[in-house]
Amino acid sequence: MLISKLPPHVDIVIVGGGPVGALLAQRLYASGHDALLVEAKSSIGNDPRALAIAYASQQSLAASQLWADSLAATPITQVHVSQAGTLGRTVLNADELDLPMLGSVVKYQNLAQYALDQLSTGPARLALASKVTHIQRLARFAQLTLATPSGEQKISCRLVILADGGQLLNQLPEIRQTIKSYEQHAVLATLTPKQPHKGIAFERFADDGPLALLPTGNDYTLVWTQTPEQAAARLTLSDADFIAEVEQRFADRVAGFAAVTGRASWPLALKTVNSVVGQRVVLIGNAAQTLHPVAGQGLNLGLRDATTLADVLAATPARELGEAASLARYAKLRSRDAGLVTVVTDQLITLFDSSSLPLKHARSLGLLAMDQCAWLRRGFAERMVYGAR
């Protein structure tokens, strides 16, 4: 339900109206909590990213009316992982997990706008164009100052949940953010394959950076990790030369590409915090961690943050919202999954960034071992779909 005037008090304020915040808002309404989601934008702007949504994440969104056929998501039935210049490869299949798909690829812009539209017309409360500028926290409640279309407004609450970005972290002295620059950019492009992709996604570790191909409609979305200098050079290539360079790195893994459009790039960094909870505040999604796009776990991790927090708060009486014991319970439940996924994603970049020949052969043997060991392959696929449980 879209509101134009903020109430003076609610029990819970969610800051950030992306899919993570929207999922939590829907879940909190279903559990009977007095919650309000505030989003600084009035609508989702143009965003070229396509994201891989794990099957478990898709089911969570669907259960909260945030997933629909109109999103035109493309199923991923198989993921082909390989290393250029070696025999190392492994293939993850949905059939091995008895699932209809490992996940789906959806345009972020479509998913985020659909989520806002659902909240606007549903019972959960939503305030758009309302930017939190200041957080003041006291023993029993927090007070937020917001810039809104009708001017500055204040609202008090028992619990503040930061679900999008980390711009307010400098107002939380007990929470410290660490930023690790990878000194890399992600090159994004849409590639039209010469043959149907059949729902197969690719992760290719080339000598000059990993490449991912995500089936998106009839096309592929390319995410290619490069140095800033290489990324700038790739953007200036002719379409034919760009396609030739991508095809060279995939060798005979794909049949080739007929066209390329929509090239862009953005810098990559790992952002983590020393604690996801503080005095009357919880961090989830990109506020808690921002990951490298390799393995496509960033949004999925955030959605699991939202579902776990919703479960904790559903069992928390209103008078105990924001209390240290409840927040500590959430932090403990999320520590294993968030910690493991963050470390594995970071180490993948470190491991495959080295050009050492012995290490390259060791990586190849590791991929071959996974391909030959069904239990190892299934375990890895389960982590990608469900997280660390």
Rank of each mutant, 00 (worst) to 15 (best):
D164W: 07
G165H: 11
G165Y: 14
G165S: 12
G165K: 12
G165Q: 13
G166T: 04
G166W: 00
G166F: 01
G166L: 04
Q167W: 10
Q167L: 13
Q167K: 14
Q167Y: 13
Q167P: 05
L168Q: 07
L168K: 06
L168T: 05
L169I: 14
L169F: 09
L169V: 10
L169K: 05
L169Q: 12
N170K: 09
Q171H: 07
Q171I: 08
L172Y: 02
L172M: 13
L172H: 06
P173H: 00
P173S: 01
P173F: 00
E174Y: 03
E174C: 02
E174A: 13
E174K: 09
I175H: 04
I175V: 12
I175L: 08
R176L: 11
R176Y: 05
Q177Y: 02
Q177K: 15
Q177I: 08
Q177A: 15
T178E: 10
T178D: 10
T178S: 14
I179F: 05
I179L: 14
I179N: 14
I179S: 12
K180L: 10
K180H: 13
S181C: 03
S181A: 11
S181N: 11
S181F: 05
Y182F: 15
E183K: 07
E183S: 06
E183F: 06
Q184V: 04
Q184S: 07
Q184F: 02
Q184A: 14
Q184H: 12
H185R: 13
H185I: 04
A186M: 14
A186I: 11
V187P: 11
V187N: 01
V187M: 01
V187Q: 01
L188W: 01
L188P: 02
L188T: 15
L188I: 15
A189G: 03
A189N: 08
A189W: 05
A189Q: 06
A189I: 07
A189M: 09
T190M: 05
T190I: 05
T190H: 09
L191F: 04
L191N: 00
L191C: 01
T192H: 13
T192V: 12
T192Y: 05
T192Q: 14
P193A: 13
P193N: 13
P193D: 08
K194V: 09
K194L: 15
K194I: 09
K194G: 15
K194W: 01
K194N: 15
K194P: 02
K194T: 13
Q195R: 13
P196R: 11
P196M: 11
P196C: 10
H197I: 06
H197A: 09
H197Y: 11
H197K: 07
K198C: 09
K198D: 14
K198H: 15
K198W: 05
G199L: 10
G199K: 03
G199D: 07
I200K: 05
I200R: 04
A201G: 10
A201L: 01
A201R: 02
A201F: 00
F202P: 02
F202E: 03
F202A: 03
E203Y: 03
E203L: 04
E203G: 12
E203K: 05
R204I: 04
R204Q: 14
R204M: 12
R204F: 09
R204D: 02
R204G: 03
F205K: 02
F205S: 07
F205D: 09
A206P: 13
A206F: 12
A206G: 13
A206M: 08
A206I: 10
D207I: 12
